[in-house]
Design a protein around this nucleic acid. Sequence first.
DNA 1: TCATTTATCTGACTTAAGTCAGATAAAACT
DNA 2: AGTTTTATCTGACTTAAGTCAGATAAATGA
Lengths: 290, 290
Amino acid sequence: MTDDIQRIRRFNRAVTSEVGALDTSFLGLGRPLGSARVLNAIGHGQQEVGAIRTYLGLDSGLMSRLLRGLETEGLITTGPSPDDSRRRIAQLTEAGRAAFAEYERLSNDQARAILARHPRPKDILDAMDLIATALGQDRIEIIEIDPREPEAIHCLTQYYEELERRFATGFDVNLSRDPEATDMIRPRGVFLLAMSDALPIGCVGLKGGGGPVAEIKRLWVSPAARGLKLATRLMTRAEDTARGLGIDTLRLDTNSALPEAAALYRKSGWREIDRFNDDPYPDMFFEKTL
Amino acid sequence: MTDDIQRIRRFNRAVTSEVGALDTSFLGLGRPLGSARVLNAIGHGQQEVGAIRTYLGLDSGLMSRLLRGLETEGLITTGPSPDDSRRRIAQLTEAGRAAFAEYERLSNDQARAILARHPRPKDILDAMDLIATALGQDRIEIIEIDPREPEAIHCLTQYYEELERRFATGFDVNLSRDPEATDMIRPRGVFLLAMSDALPIGCVGLKGGGGPVAEIKRLWVSPAARGLKLATRLMTRAEDTARGLGIDTLRLDTNSALPEAAALYRKSGWREIDRFNDDPYPDMFFEKTL
DNA sequence: TCATTTATCTGACTTAAGTCAGATAAAACT
DNA sequence: AGTTTTATCTGACTTAAGTCAGATAAATGA
C-alpha cells in the first residue's frame, strides 16, 4: 500500500516536470503566464470577461489589467456585452488569432512528441484516458447528441471494434440491424453520450418508432470509464427520456459473450423474453415495463 | 491523429488541474512554494546545496536567500561539507523534520484519495507507471543490487506472477531451481535492476559459480516499460559484467510460452543447445560465447 | 423613481520569484 | 607560491502575481 503511494507520487513528479513544462513553455513566447492563459481562454471560445475570471480564478483587478495589457499589445478587443452592457466580452484580433495559433502549435507539438517517442502510443493514450477520466470522474456529464456527429461515431466505432474482439464469430455492423439515425433523434428516440471533459466515454441509443414500444441499442462504456457505474447512469437517463416520450415498454437484445451487460439488465428490472427479431448476433432478449 | 492529440491535451488539462493542485497545496502550510520545495528536497535526503540548486533549477542568489530564510525559521542548519569546505550541506532540525513530515502527509493523503475514489486502483497504478516511465524513458538507469533487497524482490515477485499467468501449468518458484542470492553477487555474479525514478521496472541475474561458465536468470521487464529495448540493455550490461568477471560462456533456459524472450536471444547472438538441467519449467536452452 | 446590486475598472499597495554584478573563501592547477 | 577555478553569499535591482479599497456605470428591484 505504501508502495502504491510511492507509485502515485512518482507519477506526480513525472507529470509535473513534463506536463508542467507545457505550462512554462507558454513562457517561451515571451508573454507572462497570466496573459497567455487569458489569451488562450479567449482563443478557446470563452468570450465573457466574468466567465474567464472564474475559470482562471483571477482577482477582478488583475483580470482587468491583463485585459488592458493584451489590448495594448493589439491582440484582443473588448466591448460591452449586447444583452448586459455592464459585462464585457473579449475577442481576438487578427494578431491575437496568430498568437493563439502559436500557443496551439506549441501544445500540439508537445503532445505529438510524447506519442512519437514511444513504441506503444495506443497504450499511452489509453492510460491517459483512464487517468484523466478517473481524475475528472465527478465531472462526467450525459448529453443528447445526433448519432451522426463525430463524437457519437467515435463511441460507436469503438463499440463495434469491441464486439468484433469479443464475439467468437467477429462482428460486422452491415450484417446487423443498424438503426436509422432518425429513430434515435427526438421525437422518435434519443442518443446519449457520456462526456468527460470533451472526450466521449460512453453511449446508449433509444430507438423509437413513434409508438409505445422502443428499443435500447448500442450501450457501451469506454474501458477507461468502467467501474464508475456509467452504464447504469446512461440507462437510467435513457429510461427517463423514454417515459417523457410516452413510451411504456422497452426491449433490447444482447449476446451472452457480454455477461456484464446481461447482469446489469437483470439487476435493474429487466426480464428475459423470447427472441423478437432475426438479427444474427444477439442470443438474449430483454424487456422492461416503465 | 488529431484526435489522439486532443486526448493527450485533455490528459494534460486533467493532471495540471489535479496534480498541479498538489504543488499549490504546499502553499497551504503558509510557506512560499520556493522554500517548501527546498525544504522537501532536503527532507528527501538531498544534502548538498549545489545539488539541490541544480535539481530545482534555482539561481545561486535565490537559493542562498531561501536557505537563509529556512535557517531563520529554525527549520534547517547549514555547514561546510567535510570533504570540500567551499560546498555547504544542509540538514533538517527537529522543527524542520516536523514541517517536512507535514508535507509528506499532505502528498500521501492526496495520493491515497486518488486510489480510494476509484473502483480499479490497480489499473490506475499501472497506467500511472506506464506514463511516468514513458515520460522519463531517457532517464532509465541500470544499477547493481543485492537480489535480497526490496526493490529486487519487487521485480522478482512480478516476474513469478507473470510466469504463473503465462505458463499453462502455472509456476511455483519452489519447484524451480531458485538461484542462491550469493551466486548473483560479486565476485561470483551480479543482479541488475532497471530503475526509472526510484521505481524498479526490470531485472536480470547473472549467476556464476566462480568458473568460466555462468547463467543468465530472471530476465524480466515491467509491462510499463516494454518496447523500450530495456531487455537488450539489461542483457548487454549483464554480458559486459560477465566478461569483467572472467566468464567466457553464458547459458540460460527459457520456455516457449515466452516467445519474445527466445526471439531476443536468437537476435543477439545466442544459439539453442540441448537441455543442460532438470528444472521442470524450461523447454528451451541457449548458449552464448563471449 | 431611487436605492441597491452587479460587473468592471483604477490606483496604491505587498509578496514571491528571479536576475546580475561583484565579494569572499576554499580548492585545484601550474 | 601565485593564479585560476569553484561554490556560495550579498546587495541592488526587475518582473509577475496578487490584494484591497474605493470609483464608475449599467441593471435590477421596491
